[in-house]
Design a binder for these strands. Structure first.
Lengths: 248, 248
DNA sequence: ATAGAAGTTGACGCTGCGTCAACGTCAAGC
DNA sequence: GCTTGACGTTGACGCAGCGTCAACTTCTAT
């Protein structure tokens, strides 16, 4: 028995375009092509098509399907590989959903849509290269191990303390305090302690970090959102603190 | 302050190609373009870029991001829409994972990779149009309601009985029984009863169904996998059964 | 002055078809 | 025998979001 392209398309629940596509890429050649160029399909074609569509519904790509059907790859292996891939996707989606929910809560709570608490949140993977360049691989690895060792709760707490510090800087800035004022230096003291949780900052490190805060808008934005100029104040305060309290 | 394209790309953790793309589509134009064509970005650009990347990490499309950032669409609404979309995707993935697992179990169990137990598994949605054409909308809706009313367990059982019947037909065919033999007619009796669970088949319906089994490879394959010619035997047996037992 | 790094503008590639466009075929009715 | 309409064909573009050459021009440092 032989069917036209539309016949096959309809019975299999797909479209003629798809069939021509499968023909073009050699996945499902017509069993016969008429002198007029018409494609005709037989029973075997249809069985093959069913398998293709089945695998496709499972989410496999056409290339993978071709491999399975040509027997180059056994079905079980292909499915297991694909399963792993699907599970990975699912985790990704789950993470995204979580992130979106969080972001949603934040924006609904009136917070600005801002970059994550960069660095202060230690997005280590993303900034690994940069951190390594600036402070050396040792510092990176140490910080990373430490960060990973924390529980979710601890991480949140750590970030929260950072947010509080930033907010306090902001208020001080708004109140017109100078970088070397006792008030600001007290905040910087907390800032220093907060940072000490990971690496014991040296004088240069601490000053350099301060400069980073203004030079790199990713960081600056996190402070300046509490008022323009806060980032500059922070930098100066850190410099003063370092020179007063950290040995050469 | 002003940065080159690479500076921005590095600090934001993306590539210059991406930035040019965003420039091309108007999502993030450079703050300045030099006489030599070089792109330069300022602090505002970077903040905007951060927001873009944040939203992108949440999975939003560039078009959606553009809307949000231009203020045409409020962030909350966009995020909620997106959240719904993500959840939908997750359900899809979950279903796929389930299907792949099932298929995997089946193929590992030695079963052939075959099209699902078509029709006999009542893939109603897929074949709705066809069923309606052949047997009318009433029959469809009745069958559909019935099928939906079943539990998963019941559905499996129903499919299993069908598989058993098909296998028995296959054995009878292999043994050379004729369509009007008592043995085959006994199987057909079960077949009829099985079908009666959904619609009380009329004579014409039952005969027509038999013809469908051979005319349509989707169905034929499900019988002929037990041996070539089984589908034909089934058709004939059904015809005999209908004429003997079903009133005009 | 010259090398090498970094910049530019195209343009193709990838996935899986949907969707025209422009044109040939075939069965049916007048 | 001609028209009509349904169905067929082969291109080719479009889509999302950049990666990846390619072929040049510019900046920077020696």
């Amino acid at each position: 028995m032989e069917w036209s392209i539309q016949d096959i398309a309809r019975t299999a629940g797909t479209t003629s375009r798809t069939l021509r596509h499968y023909g073009d890429i050699g996945l499902l050649p017509p069993s016969r092509v008429g002198g007029n160029g018409y494609r005709y399909y037989d029973q075997d074609s249809l069985v093959r098509l069913q398998r293709i569509l089945l695998l496709r519904d499972l989410g496999l790509g056409l290339a993978a399907i071709a491999e399975v059907l040509s027997g180059e790859q056994d079905t079980g292996a292909a499915l297991r590989t694909h399963l792993a891939l699907l599970e990975q996707q699912r985790r990704r989606i789950d993470r995204q959903i979580e992130s979106v929910r969080t972001t949603l809560r934040k924006t609904e709570g009136g917070e600005q849509l801002m970059a994550q608490e960069v660095f202060d949140g230690f997005d280590h993977v993303k900034y690994e290269q940069e951190v390594v360049e600036r402070w050396g691989r040792d510092a990176w690895e140490k910080g990373d191990r430490w960060w990973r060792s924390l529980s979710d709760h601890e991480r949140k707490g750590f970030q929260q303390r950072q947010l509080d510090i930033a907010a306090d800087y902001g208020r001080a800035c708004h109140a017109g305090r100078s970088a070397d004022s006792a008030e600001v230096q007290a905040i910087t003291q907390r800032h220093f302690e907060w940072l000490s949780a990971t690496v014991r900052p040296t004088k240069e490190y601490f000053i350099g970090l301060g400069e980073m805060y203004v030079a790199d808008p990713r960081f600056a934005a996190n402070y300046d959102k509490h008022g323009t100029g806060t980032a500059v104040l922070v930098r100066d305060a850190m410099k003063v603190y370092a020179e007063r309290n950290l040995g050469a």
